[in-house]
């Protein structure tokens, strides 16, 4: 689904984006920063992940379309910082709910995985 690819062996240490997590990250980004265009979203993810995550920025748009089709975000044309025409995405009400659900889900799974790893470590 996601075109998260490594960029050659030199950067192989960087992590691939987990399937489905990009959607969650975008929702969260829009939640935190308000309406944003695709470029802005890519920058924010880059910044937050401290360049650990590697993604083809184009895949952000695939994610955005999917979120739009589900009705979790909407898009409007606007003008970017340096006066270019850009599409601004913003979270909808149902998107907000979805974010809450997904966050909770993520935390639960992360907790479970954490516990499993901890148990295995104690052996």
């Amino acid at each position: 689904m996601l075109y998260a690819m490594t960029k050659g062996t030199a950067e192989a240490k960087k992590s691939e984006v987990l399937q489905g997590t990009l959607d969650l990250m975008i929702l969260k980004t829009l939640h935190a920063l308000g309406p944003l265009h695709g470029f802005g979203i890519a920058r924010r993810i880059e910044q937050v992940s401290e360049e650990v995550l590697q993604l083809n920025e184009g895949t952000v748009y695939t994610s955005l379309l999917r979120l739009q089709q589900q009705g979790w975000i909407t898009a409007n044309w606007g003008t970017s910082e340096n006066n270019r025409k850009a599409k601004f995405y913003s979270l909808t009400k149902s998107g907000l709910k979805q974010l809450a659900r997904e966050t909770e889900n993520w935390e639960r799974i992360a907790g479970v995985i954490g516990r499993v790893l901890l148990l295995e470590g104690q052996k």
Binding site: F39, Y61, Q69, G71, S80, A86
Partner: peptide, 29 residues
């Protein structure tokens, strides 16, 4: 959503071209 898209025009595809171009220019800048 897909069903509606069947009957809508081709505008979204052109929109996406614009969007991509903007993104690329911003990156280049």
């Amino acid at each position: 959503a897909k069903f509606w898209a069947l009957f809508s025009d081709r505008k979204p595809d052109h929109d996406f071209d614009d969007e991509m171009q903007t993104h690329l220019r911003l990156l280049t800048d």
